[in-house]
Design a binder for these strands. Structure first.
Lengths: 226, 226
DNA sequence: GGACAAGTGGAAGCACCCGTCCACTTGTCT
DNA sequence: AGACAAGTGGACGGGTGCTTCCACTTGTCC
């Protein structure tokens, strides 16, 4: 991102600077996982043992830092789709895939949200998402062909499910840490071909993209009263 | 709430004060509906044409104001359950009910969140919720008895669904205003008895209560990067 | 119409977080 | 070892929102 043509993120940096950069990313990973994407930058800096100035010079916007912090997890996310394609049973592969990524959401408060957003400036990051999406599309095709996935299942339904799961996770928090498993159970059964009553139309891809883009400026969301 | 023993909320107030109170509640309803529960108090005051001081004296905490603003909608919420019970077809009643309250969430950003929270100090408010809950429990019983609702459907599943729908609504926002309908379609099909693969256990009532209680102090949630 | 309680509004103090800027430190290269 | 670029941290100015407080206004009742 901030490096010229380098294969590795921190190339060209002085060794101490590179060490700090790695610390920052590690600290961000922890902080995002524990508290979600909106932890104060200063907390991350303190956790990394650097000043805020250092953090901002390396990652000028929060989105940059988020992209750096979740790059590895985003790769794992893409790998999961690839692995699911390797499953000999298309339907089983589909179900395990959905469960896996929902579990990834459950394990990291930051990732919960990251999977419902897009970060157009983070190239490698979005490339992983695109790979995952392509493999998932293939996965859907196979599962439909096998007659197990309902024919009207749309690729847009996956991000929608992730948004729903994010809602369950953030609302329930630690009060019922496994509730999301049941929820995903419901979703998967709704995806089965046998229960294929007609559904309202899915959102258009462009609509989902706009939704995942979010407002670019200052902005908040839910939050509790008092 | 702020009145001694009165049947009506604003009893005992000077007429001008009562007029202001009503304006405040009306302004809060609008503001919450448009921007969610975390609109600045000052915006509400300005919309009502009063000073913040007036607002705070009448409703000392945000929760008080939220309860006042959504009391009517909460009654409507309870009525919907009662009406659903009147439906001669238990399954149809169940489906219409779920669709109705999800539509109520979709129509009001504040209510989206309100339905996933509890406000223990707002007596009348929570009484409506309890009525709705009791009727919903009856609704479930009937639909199960009719063999249409899966036997392992739990009353705790409804609040979980509302949390999920809240996730869809807040993430998608205005980008795909009807996406929630499709989502609810999925949920309902998953509730049908015919698709009754076993599910993970539901959360305990106490867990759901704790979840809906939220943290009582300062606190934020998702929010986007950048 | 006068007196007093009730009600009002908005300024002020506080807390939080963002993002910048620059005097100082540290690595690196010769 | 010296010199210079690279890197650092945290103080600072700016913005937002919460909540309190009190000098002033306005209804109400006699």
């Amino acid at each position: 991102m901030s490096s010229p043509t380098a294969p590795h993120a921190g190339a060209g940096l002085r060794v101490d600077a590179e060490r700090n950069r790695q610390r920052i990313v590690a600290a961000a990973r922890e902080a995002f996982a524990e508290h979600g994407l909106d932890v104060p930058m200063e907390d991350i800096a303190r956790r990394a043992g650097v000043g805020v100035g250092t953090l901002y010079r390396r990652y000028p916007t929060r989105a940059d830092l988020v992209a750096a912090a979740f790059e590895a997890k985003m790769s794992a996310y893409a790998d999961a789709a690839r692995q699911a394609l390797a499953d000999p049973d298309p339907w089983h592969g589909f179900c395990v895939y959905v469960e896996t990524i929902c579990a990834m959401q459950a394990g990291d408060r930051g990732f919960t949200t990251v999977l419902t957003m897009t970060f157009p400036t983070a190239k490698q990051f979005e490339a992983s998402r695109d790979h995952a999406f392509a493999d998932f599309t293939a996965l859907i095709g196979r599962a439909k062909a096998a007659g197990r996935l309902r024919a009207d299942f749309s690729t847009e339904d996956l991000p929608m499910f992730l948004m729903a799961n994010a809602g369950v996770l953030t609302s329930i928090g630690d009060a019922a840490p496994d509730a999301w498993r049941r929820f995903v159970g419901y979703l998967l059964q709704a995806c089965a071909a046998q229960s294929a009553q007609p559904l309202p139309d899915p959102p258009a891809p462009r609509q989902m993209y706009r939704a995942m883009l979010r407002a670019t400026g200052r902005q908040r969301q839910q939050r509790a009263g008092r």
